[in-house]
């Protein structure tokens, strides 16, 4: 496979790793964008999901949001934001688009996890005189944690993917290596960029899967 050989050569050439268009910088951009947006989306979605799940309200909202998130193309939202007045605010269009697509899995899984807590356990906790807040934080949240973490993992992988698409709309990150490769008709560069993106996505997926396993193997984690 000469194409793979050329892609490997592209990847291992030091010149492609340094500078503003280099792999190192693009990777840093990608990680920074993903990390910031993951923190933002968790801060927005998780409290809402936990409170809604605790109250048992808004289930339809959580489900419909997930469906809408699937039906609306990320690329369309990115471009729509770019052409809107927000488009002038630097990297905000990208950040907003990324957060929009990371929220549904967080909300849906968080809500489902909270609703999935055994009702007998909840009644027992209430019978012991726990307040709503204690119930949420000490009983429901720990039991819902595996699913909450699943939501975080899905959101993180989704963010890595959306951040890649953002390159199509002029954003930074590893996707830029792919789009630049397409623009210069350099198949090796396209393949090299694709490997980097796929590798990062798989790494993120694997890392969060490990965190999940660790969290459920330790006390206070999951139901086991």
């Amino acid at each position: 496979m000469t194409t793979l050989g050329a892609a490997w050569e592209w990847l291992t050439s030091a010149a492609h790793w340094s500078g503003g268009d280099g792999v190192a910088h693009r990777l840093a951009e990608h990680l920074y964008l993903t990390g910031v947006c993951l923190a933002l989306s968790c801060a927005v979605a998780l409290p809402v999901a936990l409170v809604l799940g605790h109250l048992g309200r808004g289930g339809a909202l959580a489900v419909n949001l997930a469906n809408a998130g699937r039906a609306v193309p990320t690329f369309a939202v990115l471009v729509l934001l770019l052409l809107s007045p927000i488009g002038g605010w630097g990297s905000w269009p990208t950040v907003i688009a990324l957060v929009l697509f990371a929220v549904p899995p967080l909300l849906t899984n968080g809500y489902t996890g909270m609703r999935g807590v055994d009702r007998d356990v909840v009644r027992a906790a209430r019978g012991m005189g726990m307040t709503g807040r204690q119930l949420l934080l000490r009983v429901e949240l720990p039991l819902a944690l595996p699913l909450v973490l699943t939501g975080v993992r899905i959101a993180a992988v989704q963010l890595v993917a959306t951040a890649t698409v953002a390159a199509l709309a002029g954003g930074g990150g590893l996707g830029r290596i792919i789009t630049a490769g397409f623009n210069t008709a350099s198949t090796p560069q396209v393949i090299a960029g694709a490997f980097l993106v796929a590798g990062l996505a798989l790494l993120v997926e694997g890392a969060f899967a490990l965190v999940q396993r660790f969290a459920s193997a330790h006390p206070g984690g999951g139901t086991g």
């Binding site: 890595v160 890649t164 792919i178 490997f195 798989l202």
Partner: peptide, 18 residues
């Protein structure tokens, strides 16, 4: 299937280019 599904679409299309 998990591995395939984890690969972002832009990368997937790029990998199929050759």
């Amino acid at each position: 299937t998990t591995v395939l599904y984890t690969i972002p679409s832009l990368a997937m299309f790029s990998l199929l280019l050759p």
